[in-house]
Design a binder for these strands. Structure first.
Lengths: 214, 214
DNA sequence: GCCGCGATACTTGTATGCAAGTATCCGAGC
DNA sequence: GCTCGGATACTTGCATACAAGTATCGCGGC
């Protein structure tokens, strides 16, 4: 399990380059465990489509597939937008306070240009919204799909006011939820979620060898 | 992999009763393989929340959790309703023909009261719709979530005109898709998907020991 | 008769050994 | 120099052996 998290993180952060060959034995040695837990982790990563395993040949870090990225975006959008409608209907005062406290932390991370801290808060923000729907399972699925999106996001150095616009969008989402305005909350979230995707073509032109199709 | 399908099917069909203890050794013996592939299958089933594994103690067929059923319904609804909107926008003449051919097969199964055949066609119908969205991954996730729904469906002997109403609803969905009417298609599908859930309270009162909470 | 304690038989988790298959590299033949 | 063939070293997939831990059953003491 810990092995899975470590490998997944390494892949998403592009420390393991797309296309790179992974040896179960080598990974086992590096991580100080046996092949068995490594195999278990690789099985899960294969379900996430983050690695491809060719029998009797090898396992490889999956190249970034624009199709997989689009699928992930579609799935995340469908799930989180459905969830936020419920969240807007169900949320109470305490829930809104928790969201706004997170927002203030985001602003601090923004002012400090602390991207790592921001990503953690960003995850927590979206998870809170998913959980407010009453269906916490939604977050686990959305998070797994998000791996593909984070992978392209990690490749792109965020530009100047990136964090500023992220926080602003989060704030718009929160405001709509607080107003119990499901329609507006969904719209604001959908707009926000599509931010990431806009960067894909640029990133692809910068790292063509990381991508799959021609 | 085949082990996973066999075990999953046995659980969904309630051949393995909820709460029943599963022995990796015993399953390995029954299936004629070693513990390794059995463990692999159990790991996937755990992700599906169809089994619960307590370390150093045992793995058990998960009892039917009304929360898990509600989560599955929510996820399936969110994904398939989002998918059908795209399907309605994108589908062509050939796609509609394929759907209608499936519908005619459904009618034959209905007239023969062949439930097994109908379930196969039902799956194919929904998969086709998901694929028409251009995001085939959606089906794989929806299908995995659907395990929880099928489990309660299997427990309930379908009543008289069950297949009739199912076919009618499928036909309404198809008609809206053929008209490229995304709104109506979504509405029709959402209504259809909520059919199953209506049965849960009745089933739960009939098989209280299969369920989780009080 | 009842309670407490210890041995036992089971469980999952991990490590390792074996089997089957593929790509590669090196040498022989042309 | 080029091509073809065989041995080798690697891979994953499966089976098995070991380690650590928990519930249960039975026996001894009260």
């Amino acid at each position: 399990m810990q092995v899975y998290a470590a490998l997944r993180d390494a892949i998403v952060r592009a420390e393991l380059a797309p296309g790179q060959k992974l040896s179960e034995n080598e990974l086992a040695g590096q991580l100080g465990v046996s092949r068995t837990p490594v195999r278990e982790a690789i099985a899960r990563l294969r379900e996430d489509r983050l690695v491809e395993v060719v029998p009797q040949l090898g396992t490889f870090v999956a190249r970034i597939s624009t199709q997989a990225v689009a699928d992930a975006q579609f799935i995340r959008e469908a799930l989180e937008c459905a969830a936020i409608r419920r969240a807007a209907e169900r949320c109470g005062e305490d829930d809104v306070n928790a969201l706004e406290e997170n927002l203030r932390a985001q602003e601090r991370a923004r002012d400090a240009s602390d991207f790592d801290a921001f990503y953690v808060l960003d995850d927590a923000f979206h998870q809170t919204l998913c959980n407010l729907s009453g269906h916490p399972t939604v977050w686990s699925i959305s998070q797994r799909a998000k791996g593909h999106l984070n992978r392209v996001r990690r490749l792109s150095l965020p530009i100047g006011d990136y964090l500023t616009s992220m926080v602003d969008e989060h704030r718009a989402v929160t405001a709509a939820v607080a107003r119990h305005d499901a329609d507006e909350a969904e719209l604001a979230l959908r707009y926000h979620l599509r931010m990431v995707l806009r960067e894909v073509p640029r990133i692809r032109s910068q790292h063509p060898d990381f991508f799959d199709e021609a």
